[in-house]
Nucleic acid binder design. Structure first.
Length: 517
RNA sequence: GCGGGAGUAGCUCAGUGGUAGAGCAUCAGCUUCCCAAGCUGAGGGUCGCGGGUUCGAUCCCCGUUUCCCGCUCCA
């Protein structure tokens, strides 16, 4: 089957079995926003637990944090998000290319400068050593003409930018007869503002309100709490702060199901280190994180590192962990060496000293940061993609059959155990309930008595339940049940009293964590 | 944002200018079965939404919204 078809089936499966629903579906939906259903929320919580415990429980120098979504607006100025996430964009209707309007105008300004410089260069050649550039620039009519154009355009451009006047920006592009470099035409759309940050107002009165943003990343909540955690937790460098939380980006194009959403959840850990040691830690965390992914057992070859060639303004090293999705290798996690950019920026913008006194060195410094940042929703999709199988089966009488099975790692499965009476009479349902009542404090259990036993097994396969226990007449006599395994479909008869231990040995995270060290 | 495709029952999809059907699923009853498809019955849709053409629109036209694909964008 084509990979794309599998992806489509996976999306349908997510809906049909209560993993993922589109937001506000009965109102036609809301673009690129999704809700997690009764099984999805369980899986998601289990993924969080796997990540959180592997960070906070297994590393004594990593602690947790849960910072608010709303933060002081200046934080986003300090982080660079206000500038970098705020672009006036314009499209050329013929070439279908999109440009930043401000960049187009700046290029036009550069053209005038170029013309002036050419005149200067020509004159310099002609006059040689006697050439007085300052005088030339002040007197040459061609240079003066261009300089005046430059001045006029620059003044107009600066005013438009300051006033955030998009119509004026468009008018400038029209007036300057700026053409698309690809199509060569001047057939432009209007200039539109694309701000990747969602904004709202805090405070009840309009004039006294503070413009606040929904955070576009969770990292800043960690940076601005660096001092609080370091001091109250008596943390010594190197140490890390982990956080799971929602982030929001008003994506221009948000697609591929839950791969790129407007509201999404991140699991981030910022690790603070001594300057100069950041690249060693970067390598160490690369390795640690890759192990974490591979421990799930979806095939080592399905993961790879993708080194960033173009680094963001804050980073001196960056790598993605990519997984082979049905639509190709895609980023699941990013590991970045963020230098001291963020803490220094906050130090500058807040006016508070954000430093660490290193007793070994006997000096204070702004720590460097190595970040691991994983998209929880992407991780969810990755696990669903990797777990979804359509198996061809042949039964004893030669009948062909297919089953859809989610081979989720047992610790992550939404339901751990389904208990079902073989038939719904003769006291079998009561016995099944009895077993659940005993085990429900340990595992998420489900009871099912509807339809044939085979059908019930398949229903559990579809949501990834690793174990089914079936109560039959023999159970009443000798206190045993048949346990049926999801992946192999094998069955064996075990004592009811053994169930707890059999399941516990498979569904706890210990086996996974053992692969991490 | 541009271009293309799609939207009919929970799911997969038929269908017709005269107000809708199948299979599966769901529910109830029968059957009592260890790998989905045995029998009987029931519920469920203002055919994405809005407007237009028409005596009449699920069907034709326009707009809009959502999803998919390509481009674009992407800390």
């Amino acid at each position: 089957m084509a990979q794309e078809d599998i992806f489509k089936k996976l999306i349908a499966h997510c809906k049909e079995y209560g993993f993922v629903f589109q937001s506000s579906e009965i109102y036609d939906g809301l673009g690129a926003v999704y809700d997690y259903g009764q099984n999805g929320v369980e899986l998601k919580n289990n993924i969080k637990k796997y990540w959180w415990d592997s960070m906070v429980m297994l590393h004594e120098n990593v602690v947790g944090l849960d910072s608010a979504i709303f933060m002081h607006p200046t934080i986003w100025k300090a982080s660079g998000h206000v500038d970098a996430f705020n672009d006036p964009l314009i499209d050329n209707k013929d070439s279908k290319k999109r440009y930043r309007a401000d960049v187009l105008i700046e290029e036009q300004l550069a053209k005038f400068e170029e013309k002036m410089n050419k005149e200067v260069a020509k004159a310099q050649k002609r006059f040689g050593d006697a050439f007085d550039e300052k005088q030339f620039r002040e007197t040459n009519p061609r240079v003066l003409a261009n300089q005046q154009k430059w001045n006029e355009l620059h003044a107009r451009f600066a005013k438009a930018l300051n006033d955030n006047d998009l119509a004026e920006l468009k008018q400038i592009i029209v007036d300057q007869e700026i053409a698309c470099p690809i199509s060569g035409t001047r057939n432009w759309t209007d200039v539109r503002q694309f701000n990747l940050m969602f904004g709202t107002e805090m405070g009840s009165t309009a004039d006294g309100a503070l413009k606040v943003y929904l955070r576009p990343e969770t990292a800043q909540g960690i940076f601005v709490n660096y001092l609080n955690v370091q001091k109250t937790g008596r943390m010594k460098i190197p140490f890390g702060i982990a956080q799971i939380g929602k982030a929001f980006r008003n994506e221009i194009v948000a697609r591929q199901f839950i791969f790129r959403m407007r509201e999404f959840e991140q699991m981030e850990m910022q690790f603070f280190v001594r300057p100069g040691s950041e690249l060693d830690w970067f390598e160490k965390w690369k390795e640690t994180r890759m192990k974490w992914h591979r421990a799930l057992g979806f095939g080592d070859d399905n993961y790879r590192f993708h080194e960033h060639e173009k680094l963001a303004h804050y980073a001196n090293a960056a790598v993605d962990v990519e997984y082979k999705f049905p639509f190709g290798f895609k980023e699941v996690e990013g590991i970045h060496s963020r230098t001291d950019f963020d803490l220094s920026q906050h130090q500058e913008f807040s006016g508070k000293k954000i430093q660490y006194y290193d007793p070994e060195l006997g000096e204070s410094y702004v720590p460097y940061v190595v970040e691991t940042s994983i998209g929880l929703d992407r991780m969810f999709l990755q696990i669903m993609s990797a777990s979804y199988f359509e198996e061809e089966l042949e039964s004893a009488n030669g009948k062909k059959d297919t089953r859809v099975v989610l081979k989720l790692p047992a610790p992550l499965a939404p339901v751990k155990l389904a208990v079902m009476p073989l038939v719904k009479k003769d006291g079998l349902p009561e016995k099944a309930r009895e077993i659940i009542d005993d085990l429900k404090f340990d595992f998420n259990c489900q009871y099912d008595e509807k339809d044939s036993i085979g059908k019930r097994y398949r229903r559990q396969d579809a949501v990834g339940t690793p174990f089914c226990a079936t109560v039959d007449h023999q159970s009443l006599e000798d206190q045993t049940v048949t346990i049926r395994y999801r992946d192999t479909m094998k069955q064996e008869r075990v004592a009811i009293s053994e169930l707890k231990e059999i399941i516990a040995s498979q569904v706890n995270f210990k086996a996974l964590f053992a692969k991490l060290s």
